[in-house]
């Protein structure tokens, strides 16, 4: 199924809202352990993971949501050159 840019924009908007809500990780406010990889406290590891997901979302935005501008119409000069005149 091929989605329109508008549909991708809606998916992106919903994903942004969800990710923003997940930014408020109050449940991590009072625990440091367990340490991820033996050194990264919980809240830090959580937000590093959050950034990884945000990066994926930004890639999605630039690939599917960001419009591709219409190709400029060839000017008379360009058409003439293309015709080898």
């Amino acid at each position: 199924m091929v989605l329109s840019r508008r549909a991708h924009a809606r998916i992106f908007a919903v994903a942004c809202v969800l990710l923003t809500l997940l930014h408020f990780d109050v449940w991590n406010n009072h625990r440091a352990l367990p340490l991820t990889f033996g050194w990264m406290p919980v809240d830090l590891a959580y937000h590093v993971g959050w950034i990884v997901v945000a990066t994926a979302l930004v890639f999605y935005m630039t690939a599917r949501v960001w419009p591709t501008p219409p190709a400029p119409e060839p000017s008379a000069e360009t058409s003439t050159r293309a015709n080898g005149e």
Partner: peptide
């Protein structure tokens, strides 16, 4: 370390 979440994470998006 809470400063990372408070500052860096949200600006990445």
């Amino acid at each position: 370390i809470g400063e990372f979440g408070r500052n860096a994470a949200i600006i990445a998006l």
